[in-house]
Design a protein around this nucleic acid. Structure first.
Lengths: 237, 237
DNA sequence: TCCGATTTTTGATCCCGATCAATGACGCCC
DNA sequence: GGGCGTCATTGATCGGGATCAAAAATCGGA
């Protein structure tokens, strides 16, 4: 029997053995609170390519990424797409003030998510200022990243964009999983292009150029960073 | 005697008659709290072009814009500039997690600011979750704007960028001051260019083009919006 | 293991917005 | 009111990245 595209984990799971415990919003909670939170969230699995929520959808849940990578994006009426970020384990999605999501979110590869119904989670936050402070902290960090990305989109060349992306992505993965050999790139070239405000052809050409320069090595599903120094210079950080 | 470029208002002022009372972060406070807050903040005036704080500066204060317009921007090492936003009365500046500002802020024209020393204000927030919630709300709203701006920078043409900017700026002013005739543009063409990821020449040419099309009328210090419908179509919202 | 679909790479050409250059329009201070 | 510095507009040309097109590589399924 074929697995469904979206499956809810049937049996109990516990926050205490959660992989993203110290990265996620939950890091602000004590043991007792975690036990209470366990009853509010449920683990959900999404297959590659599935949409978790869409822009303009009414917000009914908040989401905590546990495993996998997601693309967060906005579409223009004519189909042009801008990816506003990639979500990794520990990222918290769904906060907004309009009551509607202001971007869409797809699973890239399979993804596991901890899903909280909006109302009970909002009530849970209510009298827990430390959790609110943690959420605020995550929002401010995202805001900082968003501003950095504006600089990239508005003022950097294609070469700088690609180099900056590769270094930044690598840095995030290292922060999450520790030192790594090669850099996995689970997203497609088109995703990278839509993240950097380029076309797929330009991204592909720039990858090839960087390889020719001996800065990277293109491997299936990722790249190897051969000359971090040189890459940093190209990124012009 | 010539006025100094930065002046601190000498005598007492009161939050109760503050112009941005209902827009700002303070809208979450009751009368008693406002009276307490009064002692933490002081009004400061900046002359046109003055820098209020710079990127990488250690954050020693938070700022509440009371009057005037500010440009918020980031610089690349080689001088390229990206304006990440324009601050208007009611906007709250200075939140970050690194302890350093992550963008610079200049006064455009004269600006009045309500300045709070970081430590006492942080303490003031401490046991006032409603204020924290309000700050979080403002952060999330900015995040939404930041994502919209990413789409503009990454995926829109010059014409769309300019039209979108004019409509968005007009909308913000209307929200703040009610219906207006012409749209004042206190920032320079260079500021607009650095906000939209364009050059000053392209902005100027696009303005002229929109005027030739009968969409706007260029007047000293601003524009008149003659055909909002047409402008909206060009913006391709 | 082979085949068809999809994704990625590479090549040729085009065009939008940047760059370079000059002129025009203010505002400001003596 | 005249001269000067700054900012905005306009014109001519250039080039980086987009677009159009095709080949090559990779992947998934029978």
């Amino acid at each position: 029997m074929k697995a469904s595209l979206v499956t809810i984990e049937p049996n109990g799971h516990s926050c205490s053995d959660c992989a993203v415990r110290e990265f996620a919003v939950c890091s602000s909670l004590d043991a007792a609170e975690l036990r209470e939170l366990e009853h509010l969230g449920r683990r959900v699995h999404f297959a590659a390519g599935q949409t978790v929520f869409s822009e303009e959808d009414i917000t009914t849940s908040f989401y905590n990424v546990l495993d996998g990578v997601m693309r967060l994006y906005k579409l223009l009426p004519d189909g042009r797409r801008q990816i506003v970020g990639f979500a990794l384990p520990g990222d918290f999605l769904g906060m907004n003030i309009s009551g509607r999501h202001n971007f869409s979110a797809d699973a890239i590869g399979t993804v596991t998510i901890c899903q909280f119904a909006k109302a009970p989670f909002t009530r849970f936050i209510e009298d827990r200022p430390h959790l609110l402070r943690r959420i605020n902290e995550l929002a401010i960090r995202e805001l900082t990243q968003a501003r950095d990305h504006m600089v990239l989109l508005g003022r950097r060349s294609a070469d700088e964009k690609v180099a900056t992306f590769l270094l930044g992505w690598r840095e995030r993965l290292i922060l999450l999983k520790g030192p790594i050999g090669t850099v996995p790139l689970p997203m497609s070239r088109q995703d990278i292009a839509d993240y950097l405000g380029l076309t797929i052809e330009t991204v592909s050409r720039t990858f090839t150029k960087l390889e020719r320069l001996g800065v990277i090595e293109i491997i299936p599903g990722g790249i190897g960073l051969l000359d971090a120094e040189r890459a940093g210079a190209l990124a012009a950080a």
